[in-house]
């Protein structure tokens, strides 16, 4: 990787941005996402009938959700049918797994914060994000994770006195 050629004109710059864009996933992924929404809309419509649609003069609890469900079904069906015109979805890449790991640390935080406080799950989250998702060094990750939790303790527990569950 040598010194990159510098884009000079707006056109070159736009081209460069275009080239750096993440790989597109193609229309199939738009169609799949839209199909999920079609099913969701259909389920909403069924549930709305159960809630009671009422009449136009006396709208029931289900009338508005029924309209939304119908709108979702119609708009997503159009989306499925015209999906080949869309190329704005992005392909999942190998680093997409990192997102799942990141989400996992957050869910873990949410699951245990009520019982053991925020310090341990917070430090684990910070460490995983620094070391494995951010590829920082072991040293910096360890020190960073501890420093962050200490700082958060000082700010949220001691200074702001928020009721966030804490161990110490």
């Amino acid at each position: 990787m040598s010194a990159s050629h510098e884009a000079r004109t707006p056109e070159e710059l736009a081209e460069q941005w275009e080239a750096e864009k993440p790989p597109a996933a193609g229309p199939l992924s738009t169609a799949a996402a839209a199909a999920v929404v079609v099913l969701l809309g259909a389920a909403v419509m069924v549930a709305s009938f159960r809630l009671g649609v009422g009449s136009v003069q006396q709208p029931g609890a289900g009338l508005w959700p029924l309209m939304i469900g119908a709108f979702l079904v119609v708009s997503s069906t159009v989306l499925v049918l015209t999906a080949r015109r869309f190329d704005d979805a992005e392909r999942f890449v190998s680093s997409s797994w990192l997102v799942l790991v990141g989400l996992g640390t957050m869910v873990l935080f949410a699951l245990v914060v009520g019982t053991i406080g925020f310090e341990i799950p917070g430090a684990v989250l910070a460490f995983v994000w620094l070391r494995f998702l951010g590829k920082e060094s072991w040293r910096l990750s360890t020190i960073g994770a501890v420093a962050m939790v200490v700082a958060f303790y000082l700010i949220f527990v001691l200074a702001l006195q928020t009721p966030i569950p804490h161990l110490f």
Binding site: M1, S2, A3, R131, K135, E136, S137, W138
Partner: peptide
């Protein structure tokens, strides 16, 4: 002189 500007990770 040839310049190499490969980005590095943790080391």
């Amino acid at each position: 002189v040839e310049w190499r500007r490969d980005a590095h990770g943790d080391d």
